[in-house]
Simulated scan of single mutants.
Amino acid sequence: MDPNHQFTEAPMPLFAPAPDDVGLVPPLPAGNRDKSSPSYLADHRARLRERFLAGGAAAMPDYELLELLLFRAIPRQDVKPLARRLIQHFGDFNRVISAMPSRLQDVTGVGPAVITEFKIVEAAAQRLARARVMNRPVLSGWQALLDYCHTAMAHAETEQFRTLYLDRKNNLIADEEQARGTVDHVPVYPREIMRRALELNASALILVHNHPSGDPTPSEADITMTHRIAKAADSLSITLHDHLIIGKSREISFRAEGLI
């Protein structure tokens, strides 16, 4: 068994958009803060908050949800233009929130306070989704597991590989990120997966990795490595339930596709 193999996406062209000028929102002088916050801004913020509380997020476009977050990070300026720039730059709310800090800084007007707000929201979303699956039967709560995987990985800009370890009742006992890679491949070490399974006394595994391109179609390397992990697991009487590839809006199950 090759101990150092890589999951890869099928080759495809990558076009990186040119970054905007980097800019930070400067602090306002204490004597000028009241003047810089006209009443129409306060009214707009109040109306937006009221709409959110009355109807929830479902009827709000992505840029307005971003505005609500930006209100806290930039308390006395009109943040609608920045919210629209972020959506234009990244594509949607999820990709904005999950973008790497270095890429967020490429957008004019984004500084440390904005990045902190976004990363808090991202962490909270992942923790809420994770709480719905940890220490619970995975196979009978499959949709919750898929929701968690999408929340944690679907919008990541680099490829990630994680292993879900299950006990004899198929309760999820550990969710561990094994490796991170580049935009189209990630190193995977089968020996480390098996060693950790033995340490946890796991009886079964589910493999999960994402394709940052958004297309979850498995590559030949994905299939080959999955078979090697399945063989190694079988030799230790550990069941490989599935391998999920997470795309932007859908996932591929190796089990459902007959690949394992």
Results as ranks from 00 to 15, higher is better:
Leu205Ala: 01
Ile229Lys: 00
Pro3Lys: 08
Asn4Thr: 14
Pro112Glu: 09
Gly181Ala: 04
Val183Cys: 12
Ala144Cys: 04
Glu257Ala: 12
Asn94Ala: 13
Ala221Thr: 15
Ser235Ile: 00
Ser140Leu: 11
Ile87His: 05
Asp222Cys: 12
Ser249Gln: 08
Leu128Gln: 10
Ala124Tyr: 07
His44Met: 14
Thr239His: 00
Lys231Val: 10
Ala46Lys: 10
Ile245Val: 11
Tyr165Ser: 02
Pro19Lys: 11
Asp234Ile: 05
Gln126Ile: 08
Ile260Met: 06
Ser36Ile: 13
Tyr189Phe: 14
Pro112Gly: 14
Glu176Phe: 14
Ala54Phe: 05
Pro19Gly: 05
Pro26Thr: 15
Asp184Pro: 09
Leu200Pro: 06
Glu177Arg: 13
Arg47Ile: 14
Leu146Glu: 09
Ser235His: 00
Asp184Lys: 07
Ile120Gln: 14
Val22Ile: 15
Gln6Met: 11
Arg136Asp: 03
Glu67Leu: 01
Arg51Asp: 03
Ala230His: 02
Arg33Lys: 08
Thr217Glu: 02
Glu50Phe: 11
Pro81Met: 07
Glu122Asn: 14
Arg33Leu: 06
Ser235Arg: 00
Gly31Lys: 14
Ala230Glu: 01
Leu240Cys: 01
Phe93Asp: 01
Arg196Gly: 05
Gly247Ile: 11
Ile252Gly: 06
Arg168Lys: 12
Leu240Val: 01
Pro190Phe: 01
Leu69Phe: 09
Val121Ser: 05
Pro212Glu: 04
Ile223Tyr: 06
Leu207Val: 05
Ala10Tyr: 15
Leu200Asn: 03
Leu259Arg: 10
Pro11Met: 05
Glu9Tyr: 10
Val208Ser: 06
Leu41Thr: 09
Ile260Glu: 02
Asp34Phe: 15
Ala123Pro: 00
Ser98Val: 13
Arg76His: 12
Arg162Cys: 10
Met153Ala: 08
Leu259Met: 08
Met12Lys: 15
Thr158Tyr: 09
Arg51Thr: 05
Leu205Lys: 03
Val208Thr: 13
Lys35Gly: 14
Ala113Gln: 12
Arg168Glu: 09
Ile120Asn: 12
Leu70Lys: 06
Leu70Glu: 02
Pro75Met: 04
Pro212Cys: 02
Leu65Arg: 10
Ala54Thr: 13
Pro17Gln: 07
Cys149Gln: 11
Val183Trp: 15
Ala99Gln: 01
Arg180Pro: 07
Asn201His: 02
Val110Glu: 01
Asp92Trp: 03
Phe15Ile: 14
Val96Gly: 00
Asp62Tyr: 10
His150Ile: 08
Asp21Ala: 11
Asp242Leu: 08
Arg127Phe: 09
Val188Ile: 06
Ala152Ile: 02
Thr224Gly: 08
Gly214Glu: 01
Asp167Ile: 00
Ala197Met: 05
Thr224Tyr: 12
Ser102Ala: 07
Pro187Lys: 11
Ala131Asn: 05
Ser203Gln: 04
Gln178Val: 13
His209Thr: 05
Arg76Asp: 13
Asn4Ala: 15
Phe71Ile: 10
Met225Asn: 14
Arg132Asp: 11
His155Trp: 07
Leu172Ala: 03
Pro19Cys: 03
Ala83Asn: 04
Pro29Ser: 07
Asp106Asn: 13
Leu14His: 14
Glu159Trp: 04
Ser237Leu: 01
Val186Gly: 01
Arg127Trp: 09
Gly91Pro: 04
Phe71Pro: 02
Gly31Ala: 15
